[in-house]
Design a protein around this nucleic acid. Structure first.
Lengths: 207, 207, 207, 207
DNA sequence: CATGAATGAGCTTTCATTCAT
DNA sequence: AATGAATGAAAGCTCATTCAT
């Protein structure tokens, strides 16, 4: 029984190590050996848990997506005022230069075109889920009377996610003129225009 | 003299071959040998013209950026009405699933984080240039009295480019729910909101 | 006591699994893990009973040889007429394409040159024993007045075994022009010539 | 042009090295590295000429078969008297304990069941060709009035080859009771019986 | 100039074997 | 007695790069 738990923990350790490796070596340069070293196990062990590199990377991506999404979902439910909710979402979706392991790794993995077709599906699915989160915030804002949205709410939500993705990628790619603050400001600018609500600001005071 | 021209042609052939290889193998899987085969030369020849793989890829990226940018610039100057100009820009900036070698390759290369730091600069620079193009269109639109822009024009331009990047990446990554038409529609939705001009549509009739 | 019996049974299960694995993966491709899986035990258990792979394979070979030899011996004693005895021996010594687990495995193992020196002894010993069986049948035939043998009886017996080996190997190796029936016919042809007895036929009617 | 010849020679060198390696390590234990070392080239070079190990081994087998067959064919045509021809064939088809690189390697390869299906075809084909050689000798013997063959000549030829194979394998496998001389004697015994010609002897005086 | 044969470092992957439980 | 997670040595294969021609 203890065995089972140990195994689960080893798996986790490797997954975390892989995430870290993606962050500090870049997706295309992840070697099994690095991951193993980082996890403090032997290369054989990595293979014991994950058939091959692609498999490992895909799993990391899936888990990272889930963790990221869950975190945002929690945040959304905790904040009631739609205006503050929007600001918080925008801020939390952007990676901070090179801390923020999870988000950085996620962006790296998203941009990694070399994984099998299923990878595309994963990206799609995360995108759609993110859209759902923004959609919720927008609709709540409308219901609260804070937002007034002229265009399709779905389109606005999609665009917010797209902006987040694009700027996040710039930050992670090392575009020095694009800081997290600037990115947040740009996205907010759109959010305000689209919702006719000048009160959306970021970073939110309390963070 | 003829020698000089021959060399220039060989170089071009290799660059084109590299571009094609990026498109059909993915950036991370480009092998010198593939490029050589595609170009109809020997691997040694590729090295003769380009120090190493990174160098080749960076050059391809730079040239592709330039070609892409020049093409858009020409388009902008040819169309005078800012509304049609916007529509055309948006449409032309998106890759068509898997044709569109130049644009696909560009997106692939943009997302490739494994190139040296200078690569980040290149991305930055292309981003800025794209922003400049949109900026021009927006300002012309304002001058023509078609657009009414509340927020910072620079921010709007940046957002347009960011949306284009994000959706383009989705298309190239094989996100099946994101078509070129849908992406164009989403970007236009933003463009209309930001400019208070309902006449921006895409794909433009004449294309 | 029950313990002792359990262990013996586990050992047997592993040996049988190894035999089966030799048949369907080929001697050179037998992996401990395969054998373990086949036997429904863990790899560790295989090691618990057999020092290493070579040891296991050698044991399988020895046991298979014994089982095979015993079976033939029984057959020989059951049939009294030397002519029918010969036919039966020839037929039973040939593997049927890919059923016939025991005989197929035996041929596979015989041909496996990678086992230690002792392995050669085992082959020799099996060969000699087989020769003894044929020798017996030949001498009985002479005594019964059915066979008339000009050359050395020992040589004839050796040649019969050799032919059996050679054709058996062809069948197991996937030589498509060599069927069990054809092989039997060829060996019989020799048997008839050597014994001046036209009545040796195979497959024997009663099988 | 010199290039072409160099390449051909390098290929040959590797092939010869592989043959030698098969002889002194056993088929199942041939490592690319060994072959490379033996050939005095780098492991990469072996891969440059042969896709993978299986490919290399198959090629070695094919070439060895051809060389072996050609050699026997020459011998046959050089000797006119069928009785001496038979003796020479039998003798030349048997490996001498562990000299005789070509023949030893051939036997090793023949017994190697781990190669792909095509391998079976190769064995078949060599068997058939060998049969043809013996067939020729037998028919010539009949024509010369030296041999009197009762059974099917084809069957006799097949049996001669089979005996050769079987005893050859014993010799190569390290069966210490089976010497080349004894094997030759056994096969001759059969040959004499089948042809009713007591003059077939081996080793032939002149060798 | 251009070639392409040859290299060998580097990586993945396999798998018998060990050992704590 | 039996397990199976973990190991790590061993091997194959890839591919950028070099250099003699």
């Amino acid at each position: 029984m203890a065995r089972r738990k140990d195994q689960e923990r080893a798996r986790r350790t490797i997954l975390d190590a892989a995430l870290a490796t993606v962050v500090d070596r870049g997706v295309g340069k992840v070697r099994i050996r690095d991951v193993a070293e980082f996890a403090g196990v032997s290369p054989g062990t990595v293979h014991y848990y994950f058939e091959d590199l692609e498999n490992l990377l895909r799993t990391v991506h899936r888990e990272a997506s889930d963790r990221f999404f869950t975190a945002r979902l929690e945040m959304v439910t905790e904040i009631t005022d739609a205006r503050r909710k929007m600001g918080a979402l925008i801020w939390a979706g952007l990676p901070a230069s090179d801390a923020d392991t999870l988000v950085v790794a996620l962006y790296r993995l998203e941009g990694y075109t070399n994984l099998a077709p299923q990878h595309g599906d994963l990206i799609t699915s995360l995108f759609d889920k993110q859209v759902a989160v923004y959609l919720n915030a927008l609709e709540v804002g409308v219901a609260q009377g804070h937002f007034l949205i002229d265009a399709s709410v779905l389109d606005v939500a999609a665009n917010l996610v797209a902006l987040e993705d694009a700027y996040g990628l710039h930050i992670v790619s090392g575009n020095r003129t694009m800081t997290k603050a600037r990115a947040a400001q740009l996205i907010c600018s759109y959010a305000r225009t689209a919702t006719c609500c000048p009160d959306i600001v970021t970073p939110p005071k309390e963070l």
